[in-house]
Design a protein around this nucleic acid. Structure first.
Lengths: 338, 338
DNA sequence: CTGAAAGCGCTTACAG
DNA sequence: CTGAAAGCGCTTACAG
């Protein structure tokens, strides 16, 4: 009736509780044959460790923490996080790890949460998203010695290991594709400009534009919302030398931009080509379907979880570069009208 | 340096550890004046309880559990859950509660997760979403005596308290609006038919159609995905007596339907009116913007959390009816062409 | 109303 | 390699 404890297993196996603990945790201090016997008995009894007891005694909490920024209007819209979480969880649960979620209004509160989690031992490690250049959270985490992995570019990760995808390369692929279609006036609608990955993209955009001699290449920074994307689009398309192609930093803004273009009487892709970064199912639902920079975000999450678990286990971890987002051409891009 | 424990507070206050525990937890067993003094000292020392120790000693884990179904293709798309989670968390964190998230492939695994959480004491209660008529999870939860609240209609909640919104009323509002615009052939594209709230809507749709004498009122059940919505729409619009108005059970399907209609050369709303259930920002981004049944999903989550916390606290809880979704007319609906 | 004590189920030095 | 023991920080009967 009652769930078995290590004491029950110890009695059954005729050893001490300590021996059971060592055996089950793969620690030295018990012979291989006894270990095997103990593990067999534990399985037979359906033993599952009590996480609270383990955490209290200084062991692992078997929980990983993730903070999310309290919804700017985009949350609940950007599919990115939900997909990331889904991938994270897939990996975590195979290792019997839980995912603790907490909304935070800002970085200061986020750091306070980390501090509490750490002194509570309620999480064994955390994942850091949306890093900014010069992000205070990085130092705080290092100081706490809380195992952490950054989901973002190494340029902003400090000493922490990170998992990232080289957005610069993907951006160049997209711009070169547009250039090959004859576009000379290409503009970009970016997300929040203080995010590290936005900076990477902005830099790459400037570089490739210079290389290709695209003199009108501007970036308008927004807040990732549909409204922000619509406003930026309206402004760009109202220019006397309006661009013939637009690149958006997320799918929501691209869809908003498409709608604005159509309202302004422009035909996509005849008058204007559009590319979205991040390819959620919505991109295929609009008309015309959006050409997008796609990648497997759930897999990204899975790899992030794997890296974090390794860091928690005390293994030496180094930053890993994930698969690049690559261009998925659909109906929203076409040759530049001459 | 080290975080203070009740032992530190007890020493400081000149009382026993037990007294501190009683004082801090609002339990009887300590006088009001001593209680006030102890609380003051605890605050001054920056005391925060260790959740692991508390859980181990049989107290509250201060964590609430939520399972999500491993992504059908809709996840990461339907904004509903992200908004719900955001609202949940807002309430939970003001009570120092955490939210533990776990993906599950099916109900059997979900029940196993509840069982584990319960014997672990790793959560104090759970929230149940997407209930089906005759849902095995309800019985399992009652058997475990795990405090739980259903996010869904009382018809499928068994003995559990639920928080719900009367979808039947909202559906009638939408259909009557269409009828007032002169529509006689109205069809509905529903979500998964075994979900309890789908059943509520389907029933209401049949009833109001009969009352208004709309003989062609059919419901096609899908899986909530854009593809499913597109397929259903194509089928409906290919009929010789095609409907002049369509009602979709979520925003994703409505957007897909809009796109299909436009591809088939129909003009919205001149040839076809469209209404979406659940009003995410995307509904305003497409062209024409979608008329939608809106409600504040984050508030819904907040209320759900409040109800669950009351249940956990052992207060008597009864099901509460949340705000109705109401019609938000936009460009996708108009008079029926005669 | 208050205090001293046992116990929750683990982990980990510490002796053998 | 193994065992006996202390301790993690709480809660809660149980005596006074």
């Amino acid at each position: 009736m009652k769930r078995p404890t290590i004491a029950d297993i110890a009695r059954e196996a005729g050893v001490s509780k300590g021996a059971v603990s060592y055996a089950l945790n793969g620690q030295p201090g018990v012979g291989e044959t006894t270990r095997a016997r103990i593990v067999a008995i534990a399985n037979a009894m359906g033993y599952r460790p009590n996480t609270a007891a383990r955490a209290l005694a200084g062991g692992a909490a078997k929980v990983v923490g993730l903070t999310l920024h309290r919804p700017p209007k985009t949350l609940g819209v950007e599919p990115f996080f939900m997909e990331l979480i889904s991938g994270l969880e897939a990996e975590l649960s195979t290792h019997s790890y839980g995912l603790l979620l907490q909304m935070v209004p800002n970085h200061a509160d986020e750091i306070a949460v980390y501090r509490r989690w750490w002194s509570d031992r309620s999480v064994d490690g955390v994942l850091l998203c949306d890093v900014r250049t010069d992000d205070a959270r990085i130092d705080a985490l290092r100081e706490l010695q809380l195992p952490a992995v950054v989901v973002g570019p190494p340029t902003a990760s400090g000493d922490l290991a990170c998992i990232w995808s080289d957005d610069g390369v993907s951006l160049v692929e997209a711009v070169e594709y547009l250039a090959a279609l004859g576009h000379r006036r290409i503009a970009r609608v970016s997300g929040l400009s203080d995010l590290a990955h936005t900076a990477v993209r902005t830099e790459a955009f400037a570089a490739v534009s210079a290389r290709l001699g695209l003199t009108d290449a501007v970036t308008i920074a927004t807040d990732y919302t549909g409204e922000g994307g619509a406003r930026a689009t309206r402004r760009l398309l109202s220019s006397p030398t309006r661009p013939t192609a637009l690149l958006y930093d997320n799918d929501i803004m691209a869809i908003a931009g498409l709608s604005v273009a159509q309202q302004m009487g422009l035909s996509v892709p005849a008058d204007l080509s559009i590319i979205a970064w991040d390819d959620s199912p919505i991109c295929r639902l609009v008309h015309p379907p959006l050409t997008a920079l796609s990648r497997d975000i759930a897999a990204y999450g899975t790899h992030a979880a794997r890296l974090l678990l390794a860091a928690i286990a005390g293994e030496p971890v180094t930053s890993v570069q994930d698969e690049l987002a690559h261009l998925n051409p659909r109906g929203s891009t076409g040759p530049a009208r001459r």
